[in-house]
Simulated scan of single mutants.
Amino acid sequence: MKQTVGQILGKAGIRIPLILWSLAVLYPIFWMFLGSFKSNAEIYRNPWGFPETMNFQNYIDAWANYGIGTSVINSLIVTLVGTALTLVLAIPTSYAIERVNFRGSHLLFMLYVSAMMIPMVLGWIPLFFLLMDLNLLDNIFGLAIVYAVSQLPFTIFILTTFISTIPRSLEEAAAIDGMSPYGVLWKIITPLSMSGIITVTIMNAIQFWNEYFMALIFLQNSKNYTLALAIDFISNEAQYTNAWGTLFAGLVIATVPVIVLYAIFQRRITKGMAEGAIKG
């Protein structure tokens, strides 16, 4: 069937702004990628053009001379430990809130939900002194614990929604067969909630990988810097040493894993969030 002029204009009115927005978002990333292969002279001479040669020296300098390599390892450790700890704490808590009948379960859930509304900045000073007392200040594992706790309310909120839709009859049948409550949790509830678990895992991992302010407050030794702090250091140095190509290279190293991760699991994230919204 032929489309009417109104339908064509309606589709164009939706698509054109989306295309313009996509170009506005993608162009700085593309420009950053090109700049990572330029020398300082090329950046000043032709900042918007293509590099004359593919110069990888900026990546070598960023990795070796500015500590990006060490920071990548630190960020990877913090992200993996923080994400795993969040799941270990959130999955049993979500199951207990949703399935175990105890006085105050609804109140506990509301406390977790309300904690999502509290700005994390209000807890930075108390956390600083708490980590100092526990000898976890300037420690990447201490930072991972803070990350995990900060994302618990969001993770519990999402997982509780998924667990609430699982039929109780499956748990009752497993209990009749002699399965323990822990077996029910890890062998029945967890696999059936895998869509929600994958969603919160990816979103938490991206959050931990990119986080800057808490790392800035709780980490002091440059050897413990995460990737965000290392890039901030390069940015400050670039103002005096003109290491703009090295800065662009560091930004590419930090950005590409997030883009690849989101591109691979984008459908899973969208599906998980949509299912959580519908089930909720």
Rank of each mutant, 00 (worst) to 15 (best):
K223L: 10
S36R: 01
M110F: 10
Y27K: 04
G183R: 03
L143D: 02
I259Q: 08
L251R: 04
F56H: 01
N236K: 09
I68A: 04
L34E: 04
G250V: 07
Y95I: 05
I118K: 00
A175Y: 12
E237T: 14
A144M: 06
I77C: 14
P47I: 10
Y27L: 14
F30P: 03
R99F: 01
I16G: 11
A41T: 13
V5N: 15
M32H: 06
T161D: 01
I19F: 15
I97H: 03
F248M: 15
P191M: 04
N65T: 01
A144R: 08
N40E: 15
T160H: 05
V200R: 00
M54Q: 07
D177F: 06
R45P: 03
Y44N: 10
I253Y: 06
V81K: 12
G104L: 00
P126R: 06
F233L: 06
L143W: 02
F248G: 00
I176D: 09
T165Y: 13
V113L: 15
F265W: 08
Y240F: 12
A41N: 12
G272E: 05
F33L: 14
S180I: 01
I278W: 03
P153D: 00
W31S: 09
T190W: 07
N210H: 06
I259M: 10
E42R: 12
I145G: 03
Q3G: 12
E237W: 09
G13R: 14
S39E: 13
A24Y: 12
N210K: 12
I73K: 11
P51E: 07
R168T: 13
V72P: 04
V260T: 07
Q57V: 01
I197V: 11
A148T: 09
K223T: 10
S193N: 03
S180T: 14
A230E: 00
I188A: 02
K2R: 15
T86S: 13
V252Q: 03
I43Y: 14
Y240K: 11
L185K: 02
T4F: 10
I68W: 10
I278A: 14
S169M: 07
G250C: 04
G13P: 14
A277N: 05
T165G: 13
G196R: 10
K38S: 08
S105A: 15
N101Y: 11
T199D: 12
V5Y: 15
R15E: 13
L80H: 10
A90G: 09
P257V: 13
T161E: 02
